[in-house]
Design a binder for these strands. Structure first.
Lengths: 239, 239
DNA sequence: CAAAACTGTGTCCGTTGGATACCGTGTATG
DNA sequence: CATACACGGTATCCAACGGACACAGTTTTG
């Protein structure tokens, strides 16, 4: 795929997500619609991982031939982009009366919740891609929560990126257990590896041995509190 | 791929990365070795994205048939895992005299540097996967830097996860521009989209309009400083 | 009623990851 | 030193994938 192809692909995806083509007036009625297709794909991805999402399988789930999907979607890239934006869903509506810290905390918790429900969105929201209305909507909410803090526009964007990155990082660890053991996380892999190489990684071994594994929620809250503390400190220093 | 297959796959990958099979004593001499193969794949991925890495192309770069690779690597999963661990490279050696904050800052900067050199490692280090010695080595360094801070083992792990997540999040934004414009980042896509939908996202529009885009380095440092400030605050409160 | 526009199907193709059988090459053992 | 065994690379084959294209059926518009 050349750069030009990639660019036109990107534009096509953006059009699909942002300016859905008007329903044609002539011809047979459409048997499907975009939400249906997206939902079918999401169900498959949630159940059997993103790799199981093929045109054939999505079409089969909809009781239709593979090629029928291409009437609605230009290719698999578009299908995945569509699935992603639908899976992320509409952003939470934040309490406009709450202070920025409460609002951002709620936002971050909602975000890791979405990532947890659809772990494969981690893969589809990295690298080059088109961004859909919902994904931008989430960003908008975080920025709105920072209104009145006195932060610059760039700083607000940086705060949002930091928080979103944190949610992603922790959600990823929670989803890294698939195929190993349904409940346990990265620690299982660590244990497998460190059983034979503990001496090489003393600090890691000590960290894993000491204390109880506090679980993903605790890990998320710990990092979140540090980040928010850091922001709060900055705001205080400026005042 | 069933769960059992995935599990055995994972074990095979772990064996490859951690306990390389001893060189056979009989038979013809091997024409390749694992570092060569990994380097060939990395070069392709760096140049033409991860999607361009196929068995055929890697083999071709090594002057060998596709199937020859399977004598060294069980499948593409293993190849990618190998590429990933080699691309991450040996972790930086931190100044043992430096305080935790200086050390962690250097660590985080080194990490985003690696991600920047090989953007595709973002994709290969998400989701279920085997973790190689280098990847764990990086984690070990971060934990070692936190020695003497009084943090619990779980807290140290959480700190490392938060910092690594931050580096990844920012590096991802920097690499999201491929195929659009070599220099500009996510802002290009934002601009494309917001040109027609600015009213729907006032906070984002304002944030993008106000002030200059401070670039990726600034974004990274801003978030990093907030996180480190938050950690420092916690340590002070405990003392 | 006919033409135009549209949908879904069937068929075909290039590329991918991977399995298997084969032959040549090299080492260890009698 | 000869022979058996083990190993590396090649060639061939296959299923599954994303996608192109032509065709038949259906609905609206003139």
């Amino acid at each position: 795929m050349t750069t030009d192809d990639a660019t036109s692909d990107l534009n096509a995806v953006i059009d699909l997500l942002w300016s859905p083509a008007p329903t044609p007036r002539r011809g047979p009625k459409r048997g499907l619609d975009l939400p249906d297709i997206a939902t079918a794909g999401i169900t498959i991805a949630d159940t059997d991982n993103l790799g199981a999402v093929t045109m054939q399988r999505v079409a089969g789930a909809l009781g239709v031939t593979k090629m029928a999907l291409y009437r609605y979607v230009r290719g698999k890239t578009e299908l995945v982009a569509l699935m992603t934006d639908v899976a992320l869903g509409e952003p939470v509506t934040l309490d406009t009366n709450a202070d920025w810290r409460t609002a951002l905390s709620a936002w971050a918790h909602a975000m890791i919740g979405r990532f947890g429900q659809h772990p494969w969105t981690q893969e589809t929201t990295t690298g080059t891609r088109a961004i859909g209305p919902n994904e931008i909507g989430w960003l908008e909410q975080a920025l709105a929560a920072l209104d009145g803090t006195g932060l610059t526009g760039s700083e607000k964007l940086d705060v949002a990126a930091t928080l979103a990155g944190h949610a992603r990082a922790i959600a990823q660890q929670a989803s890294a257990s698939v195929g190993i053991s349904p409940e346990q996380g990265l620690h299982t892999i660590f244990a497998m590896v460190l059983r034979d190489h503990a001496a090489q990684f003393p600090a890691l071994t000590a960290a894993l041995d000491s204390g109880t594994d506090d679980g993903r929620d605790q890990a998320f809250d710990f990092g979140l509190d540090r980040i928010l503390d850091g922001i709060e400190l900055l705001l205080k220093q400026r005042r």
